[in-house]
Design a protein around this nucleic acid. Structure first.
Lengths: 170, 170, 170, 170
DNA sequence: CATGAATGAGGCTTCATTCAT
DNA sequence: AATGAATGAAGCCTCATTCAT
């Protein structure tokens, strides 16, 4: 039940936005009574917070396979490929975050920031002149690529990815 | 008065989102009565639509100076510099669009698409292998850069810009 | 202009009711500005009152031709024929009254009461046992006939009229 | 609660009209919160529709005792007596209908039409020359009598009723 | 006489939330 | 754990009315 509510809520928050998605519609889509939401989460904002936590948790999982990698170019390539390897279920969570970014002032909204250290170190190892700028550029583009992936049909994406890899020389 | 309403609405839509910004708060910030909003725009959605139109109109203005340029590299450089040369007033409009992108399915939300033709032609003239992919990559990054500019303090941006210019070889 | 407003208002009051007909719609249908209504009538209720007066005035005109009649049966027949001889323009005014009858407690709403004296005297002259009851019955039926005429297609009405005349032996 | 709302609404619709009776006043008179109205009926119009259905249902009940009658004169007399035997609770519903007749174009507003078949057959059995016209006249007068009963003090009504019965020879 | 921009009270409705069951 | 009836605050919107022009 709790699971249902969360799934329903993410979908609706992602497609309509937090304020436009009524608790009623969430309950309905989840197939539960409206009251149950408040038994589990106390607040609509509580539900939001929970989903935010889950999203971040899910994002951290993406870090796992990277930790085993050692070669900097492999690491960067792996990270840049993430937008292409995102499941539909997962995209909901990211869309949900993207929809809130501009209205909520919460550092956690910058999902890709968790890659900062890894990327920065990689560029340093690769002996870039200004690894910090390079990292910022990289993360900025990474985010752009994710937005692109959330929207576009996936056909062209591989070509774009290759293009990006070339630009970063990896 | 009409102007006041629009300004107030853009600000609030941008910072809180369409649904979270109440007509009352819009009227208050505009210094007018709530009813006046509906005399001018019929709907809250009518107001939204009007603002969307204005945003697009403002964006088209950015095309004007480009039309006089001839050298492809200059054109591309000029376009890529846009995120840095955006006035604060202007940023409101773009933030507003960004906040709605994921909830509204309207082709017009892809603001940067208006540069497609210019960019594509430029890459073609520059004899790129795959100008289409290059264009898509370019626009994708352009959008990412704009998002970045909307958020970050502007110090670092010049460095990032230079970095991008280098990557596109312009 | 004043005339336009009144005509427009009667029509809308008749077809939608007093409260449902907005001053805006009245002005629009009259082809004037909304403010003009208040220059001429001070109130929406003032407009209503004016129309009520006009309606009564128009109704009194129906008495004129009767005053020249002398034979009681001719008088009664003439009165009973009124519902059939009502112009469309005039029907608007009566519909308007009918729509308000049940919500407004104003003696003037009983339009047909102005015939009371004439009818009562007629039945008295005709030596009816209980002229008062007969009068009340007559006026009651008269009103029913008017309602009928406001609604029905007019084909059958002549037959009904004849039938009524027979019942009253006139 | 639901019952309360309906009762309150009928009363107010009857005495003030649909548009003049605010949902707030309905809720207040019903002793419930305003929101509850919309939980039960979705719309103010939904509430109206429900009441219309109830009214018609209540009216159909009047048909029941007639179905056991066989003699045509008894049937007609019974029907013509209805306006005198209407409870106050019931009168509310009819007043409500009468107030809407001229603004709503709905066949169901002609409440007395449900007696048509019964009346027509009766006059046919009684061998009237033109049973259709007679029926129309009868129903028209019936409606007039009901309007009369809704308004007048009930003293005189018995006399009028007798008078009507005489006119129809029953 | 006439307009039309502007107002603010109030109308209908939705919403998040509570509570008895 | 779960429901669903009930609430009241707030939301969007319309309305009658005013006033400067």
């Amino acid at each position: 039940m709790r699971e249902n509510i969360i799934n329903s809520a993410v979908s609706l928050f992602a497609t309509q936005g937090f304020h436009a998605a009524s608790t009623r519609s969430i309950a309905q889509k989840a197939g539960v009574s409206e009251g149950l939401i408040f038994r589990h989460f106390k607040n609509k904002e509580g539900l939001l917070e929970k989903i935010l936590e889950i999203t971040i948790e899910k994002f951290k999982v993406l870090m796992k396979p990277i930790e085993t990698l050692t070669h900097p170019k492999v690491i960067l390539k792996h990270i840049l490929t993430i937008p292409l390897n995102t499941s539909d279920d997962y995209k909901k969570y990211i869309k949900f975050i993207q929809g809130m970014r501009w209205q909520v002032n919460d550092e956690r909204m910058n999902l890709f920031q968790i890659f900062y250290e890894k990327v920065f170190t990689s560029f340093k190892v690769l002996d870039y002149d200004d690894p910090e700028t390079e990292t910022q550029t990289f993360l900025m583009i990474l985010e752009g690529a994710m937005s692109h992936a959330l929207r576009q049909n996936t056909k062209m994406n591989l070509l774009i990815l290759d293009n990006l890899l070339k630009k970063f020389n990896i």
